[in-house]
Design a protein around this nucleic acid. Structure first.
Length: 479
RNA sequence: CGGGGUGUGGCUCAGACCGGUAGAGCGCACGGUUCGGGUCCGUGAGGUCGAGAGUUCAAAUCUCUCCACCCCGACCA
């Protein structure tokens, strides 16, 4: 149950976040270092995320499958960059059944290797391609500093792994998925995101191209909210994924992989939450509306509950995800705060006065307090609530977009860049060199987030070194 | 792995300098009261004081060793 006041965002953003996660009962600390327990309310949100994405993947020809959690250590050693990238964070199983294993097994930090191994068995002919498989599950990475949802040792995700005959098809797949991610983020989670390509230093271990969607949190730090990678033939060569083309010539496949993790829940919290607690986008909220009946004696209770139950049935029939809060051991004021902490988009208050007047009070979560409360007639309430849910969904996106845009700067020189990334993002021309990128990181702790796919025409000078630059990049401090 | 900190009912902590009957608030259970923005009262359950060793008639408290967790830095979805 939610307790007293929340630490405010301005007091301590990080503490505010921790408290929301715990008080809204999204997750809790597990007895294992760096691990979390996703509680039912948090998992219900995750399930809504899963089903929205799953629907899109299936609509684009993907199928789900499951691969083992344990991967032979030797598999990791087959792709040089991959093993170098992941070696420091592997958990390794050395014993089984009381005996030392002949070969240690790695608890998967990601599944490119074992899936690559299987693909090499399955792919023989151009007719076997493409393979478009998605695995939903969890992975384990031995993280040094963890934070609920944002970075835990074990986390939940899907990982898509595809194999194609040609480079063009693989690239097309990578971008198709990035579009799905963008659509999901914007339309379901109300997260304004920027699609772009990662710099060489920021890309995935073993990838030729890594793309991402990046989102600005309310503390103005960036959060990578989804990634899609093109591997070229790197993994195909490491795992011998080959097919015979129509000319009977042996060819290596082109592969991709992509993921959105439970981290996206952290993005939703840090983008939409306020000082009252969580604010959930209606399309993903496990509970879209809560009914709070108000009464002070049994006579009032029976009258109010009769109306409340009738309204509950109407809203339920309209397909609204709904909760009746009929607890009578807590006051209604407590309930208001409690549901605000949990981020329920719409609250329907029904008291004796409403029963008399044939009205209800509707409170919208994106505008807490009196401002967001209105009295509306009971007739056609389902339509009113549905309409309000749509309105809240778009209001959240609009607010987050305005906030982001207000905090993206285009500094005129390097001095100004160093300033703006302390409390915002910089969008600047960059020559593409590792040296300039490293210098920015050294001087400011900000890194390149991504090079947006939509680039302005023309070229200019690199903000750091002044050499010719053909592309603009976002610099920001990131999670 | 470096630097800092903390371990006492479910949670937040007091008690420790100066050794002597384990405490408070919140939460929880029960009864009543209240309910249009975090009600109030009463009763009650609940603790090997992180672990081990030592000093002492006596240790939550003093000494030593160990362990765990948190915060700050280097890696990451």
């Amino acid at each position: 149950m939610a307790e007293e006041k929340l630490t405010t965002r301005s007091e301590d953003f990080s503490e505010w976040y921790n408290q929301i996660v715990l008080k809204a009962e999204m997750a809790d600390y597990a007895p294992v270092r760096g691990c979390m327990v996703v509680r039912p309310y948090g998992w219900a949100l995750w399930e809504n995320i899963v089903s929205a994405l799953d629907k899109e993947f299936k609509a684009t020809g993907h199928v789900n499958a499951a691969f083992p959690t344990l991967i032979p250590m030797s598999f990791f050693e087959k792709e040089k960059e991959h093993v170098e990238g992941f070696a420091p964070e592997l958990a390794v199983v050395t014993h089984g059944g009381g005996e030392k294993l002949e070969e240690p097994l790695v608890v998967r930090p990601t599944s490119e290797t074992i899936i690559g191994y299987m693909y090499s068995k399955w792919v023989k002919s151009w007719r076997d391609l493409p393979i478009l498989i998605v695995q939903w599950g969890s992975v384990l990475r031995w993280e040094m500093r963890t934070k609920l949802f944002l970075r835990t040792s074990e986390f939940y995700w899907h990982e898509g792994h595809t194999a194609h005959a040609t480079k063009d098809e693989a690239l097309e797949e990578m971008y198709r998925i990035l579009d799905i991610y963008e659509n999901f983020a914007v339309n379901e989670a109300a997260l304004p995101v920027i699609k772009g390509r990662k710099s060489d230093t920021e890309k995935f271990a073993g990838a030729q191209i890594t793309t991402s969607i990046e989102c600005m949190m309310q503390d103005k730090r960036a959060l990578q909210s989804g990634t899609s990678h093109y591997f070229g033939q790197n993994f195909a060569k490491a795992f011998d994924i080959q097919y015979l083309d129509t000319n009977n010539t042996l060819q290596f496949c082109e592969t991709t992989s992509w993921a959105i993790s439970s981290r996206i829940i952290g993005a939703i919290i840090m983008t939409h939450g306020d000082d009252q607690g969580l604010v959930l986008p209606p399309r993903l909220a496990p509970i879209q509306a809560v009914i709070v009946p108000i009464y002070k004696n049994d006579a009032e209770k029976s009258k109010v509950m009769e109306t409340a139950n009738r309204i509950f049935a109407e809203l339920k029939a309209a397909g609204i995800r709904l909760k009746m809060d009929d607890r009578d051991n807590v006051s209604s004021g407590f309930k208001f705060n409690d549901w605000e902490m949990r981020g329920v988009p719409v609250r329907v208050e029904i008291g004796p006065r409403d029963v008399e007047k044939g009205s209800v009070a509707l409170a919208r979560r994106d505008r807490p307090g009196k401002e967001g409360k209105s009295f509306v007639p009971q007739t056609n309430l389902a339509a009113a609530v549905s309409g309000l849910l749509v309105e809240i969904q778009s209001a959240l996106l609009a607010r987050a977009t305005a906030f982001r845009d207000a905090n993206i700067h285009e500094p005129k020189d390097y001095e100004e860049l160093k300033q703006v990334v302390q409390d915002g993002w910089a969008f600047s021309y960059w020559c593409g060199s590792k040296e300039c990128e490293a210098r920015v990181k050294e001087d400011t702790k900000a890194t390149t987030r991504n090079i947006p796919l939509d680039q302005p025409k023309g070229e200019a000078r690199c903000i750091v070194c002044g050499e010719k630059a053909a592309q603009k990049v976002y610099f920001a401090k990131a999670y």
